[in-house]
Every structure is written in structure tokens, then in C-alpha cells.
């Protein structure tokens, strides 16, 4: 594996921006962090250890997109078109989610059209984020080699000052992207430093007993229907958890008239909404809010899906907790289940 030393992260970003459209999480004046495009030469400081409220999911699986156009005679597929892109500075949880989505959407031309054009630059987290529990579901805090093209990991700091970064080229595409850049080879000590760093970070995570307990109970079907129904009473079907969840992938379709054509669109959906499974007759297998809530968490934590997808559906980012108006996001729900 090629590993290099890097003084400033921004040098790498600027290099990549020469040939790619680069997206990076940028904090604005209001203290919000979003994925924003950054041009070559633009002076925007890179902040490590930020996890935007919105994952990069929508950069692959768009919240609203056209699928095909029917002009009265022919159907024409409408694939997204753009040049090469870089998503820069993605943390382990979001990268894990992208690799999960890669499996789910492996035959989806819209997703793949964007994904094939995208280089992923991951970054190791050095402290747990607010509400994050990636360690408990094997999704962080460090980036696994196979889920990013390039990985940034910090060199040991001196007196709290960052002294630079190691740049790990974990794929051929990653190696190709930095070839030509003036980089020093790292000496072999990098891997033991990285390993030590990981252990330090992992030790800082808060207790995850409720998560482990909750996963056990869900898999043992040890949560009674009445409890789901009672908890679901606080779910107002806002759809926020599905919108922010980096692995939620459900969509609905609709046909929209545009001039003389009909356009089929797909839009993000949420299985917590009562209409999600409503049939044309009005019959609904998941009419009870409790059933829908159980289904959501079963999808995120069941061993049945591990067999199919290779891991839990949850990557431990904790975004559902921060956006849930009803206090039934992941931490609240797992605590309530484990205390039941």
C-alpha cells in the first residue's frame, strides 16, 4: 500500500480539484455544516472531526430525480450526467453506509452513474462525535481500507498541535488520483501510530450497553407489540430519521407532466409513514404505527439483514436521534427497549 506524508490537507484537496468537482463538508457562519462544492484555488479551511447533519447519501441517491421520459411514442432513460467528482473528508460511518448502499444499488443505473464517477477521500475520526456509536456497530471510528480510495489519518500531535497527515492510497483509483503530486513516502511507523490512535479514540466512547442490549432484544423478538405501539405514539411520521439515515434507501415514484411529455420521477420515501404500504383498496398491512416502528428498527439491527448485506443496517452515526421530534431516535428507543 502506498502511504505518503502530507503537511496540509488543503494541498491534497486543491490538487484533486484540478481534475474533479470536489465536495467537502463546510461550516457556514450559522454553524451549520453541509456538503458544498469547492473550486480549485478556493481558500476554505478543512475541519477534521466534523460530521454534517446530512450524510453524502444524496450525492449518489438523489432525493428527487427523473428516471425516464415518455414522449407519447418512446421511453427515454434519463441518466444523471456529470464529470468526475471527489467527496472529500468523509468519516468512517458515512463511508460504511456508502459501501452498504453500493451493494443495495449495485444494479441501479442512476446510483451507479454517479458512484462510478466519484472518488472517496476518507478521514479517521480522533474523537467520538455527539451521539455517535460507530464503534458498537463496527463502522468506525477508523476508515477500513476497502471503503475509501484515499484515507487521511493524523500524525501524532505535539502539544495539541497537528503536525501533519498520512495519506493512505487504498485503491488503484486513489493511487492514480495522487500520481504526479509532490509527496514524500511515509516511513513504516505510520501503521503502529494509527493503531494506537484508534485504541485511544475507541476508549473515549460513552457506554453503549443500551445499544447492545437493544440489538439482543430485537433479535430475540423480546420486545412486545404493545411496547412498540406505545413508543410509536411519539412518532409523528415526520420522516426525518429516514431522510437523514445514510443507509435508508426506499423511494416512491410518481409521473409528472412536462410540456407534452410524461416524466417518471423517484423521490425519497419513509417506511414510517402510514401511506408507505397502503394498497389501492385502502388495506394496509402496516396500518399500526407500532408495526412500522418495529419494522424500521428490525431493518437496522436484525441478524437477518447481516446474512444478506454483510453487516447491520445501522452505522452508528446517531443522526436519527438528533432529528427526531418524538424522542424515539436510536439512543432513546434502545434505552426504552432495554429498560422495558
Amino acid at each position: 500500500m502506498n502511504v505518503y506524508e502530507l503537511d496540509r490537507i488543503e494541498h491534497l484537496r486543491d490538487w484533486l480539484a484540478l481534475s474533479h468537482q470536489v465536495y467537502q463538508a463546510v461550516e457556514n457562519d450559522l454553524g451549520n455544516c453541509n456538503w458544498q462544492p469547492i473550486e480549485h484555488g478556493e481558500v476554505v479551511k478543512f475541519k477534521p472531526n466534523v460530521r454534517p447533519l446530512v450524510s453524502p447519501k444524496s450525492l449518489f441517491f438523489s432525493e428527487q430525480e427523473n428516471m425516464f421520459v415518455f414522449d407519447g411514442e418512446k421511453f427515454r432513460e434519463t441518466l444523471p450526467e456529470h464529470g468526475p467528482r471527489v467527496i472529500f473528508g468523509v468519516s468512517a460511518c458515512d463511508l460504511t453506509a456508502i459501501s452498504y448502499q453500493d451493494k443495495h444499488f449495485r444494479k441501479d443505473p442512476y446510483y451507479q452513474a454517479r458512484r462510478q464517477q466519484t472518488l472517496l477521500v476518507g478521514i479517521d475520526c480522533t474523537k467520538p462525535c455527539d451521539g455517535g456509536f460507530c464503534r458498537s456497530v463496527d463502522a468506525g471510528p477508523h476508515v477500513k481500507d476497502e471503503i475509501a480510495d484515499l484515507i487521511l489519518t493524523p500524525m501524532p500531535s505535539i502539544g495539541g498541535e497537528n503536525t501533519g497527515w498520512w495519506l493512505i492510497c487504498s485503491s488503484d483509483a486513489g493511487r492514480a488520483a495522487v500520481s504526479g503530486m509532490d509527496l514524500r513516502r511515509a516511513d513504516s511507523s505510520w501503521s503502529s501510530w494509527r493503531e494506537m490512535n484508534r485504541r485511544h479514540t475507541e476508549a473515549e466512547f460513552k457506554s453503549d450497553v443500551h445499544i447492545i442490549n437493544g440489538i439482543q432484544r430485537i433479535n430475540a423478538r423480546a420486545v412486545p407489540d404493545e411496547l412498540w405501539e406505545r413508543l410509536a405514539h411519539q412518532c409523528i411520521s415526520c420522516s426525518g430519521c429516514s431522510q437523514l439515515c445514510p443507509t435508508c434507501s426506499c423511494y416512491a415514484t410518481r409521473d409528472v407532466a412536462e410540456d407534452t411529455n410524461m416524466v417518471r420521477q423517484r423521490v425519497w420515501d419513509s417506511c414510517l409513514m402510514v401511506g408507505f404500504q397502503k394498497e389501492a383498496s385502502g388495506a394496509n398491512p402496516a396500518a399500526e404505527a407500532g408495526r412500522r416502528m418495529y419494522r424500521y428498527w428490525y431493518h437496522k439491527f436484525s441478524e437477518d439483514y447481516v446474512a444478506q448485506m454483510g453487516r447491520y443496517g445501522c452505522v452508528g452515526c446517531g443522526r436519527c436521534e438528533s432529528t427526531c421530534p418524538g424522542s424515539v431516535g436510536v439512543h432513546s428507543i434502545m434505552e426504552k427497549i432495554s429498560n422495558a
Partner: peptide, 29 residues
């Protein structure tokens, strides 16, 4: 408001907002 050219394609909540603190309802979403 997440926009692509002249089309609003989606929204995101704002965690630092004094009232909503990262939440939205179904209408907002």
C-alpha cells in the same frame, strides 16, 4: 434549501437553529 441550478431538490434541518435544533416535521421535510 438544497438546490441544483434553479430547482430546489431537497431540504435539510439546521442543527444550530435556536428553535428547531436540527428537527423538522413532515411538512418541512
Amino acid at each position: 434549501l438544497r438546490s441544483d441550478g434553479d430547482k430546489v431538490i431537497g431540504v435539510e434541518p439546521i442543527s444550530s437553529h435556536p428553535i428547531s435544533k436540527g428537527r423538522l416535521c413532515s411538512k418541512g421535510w
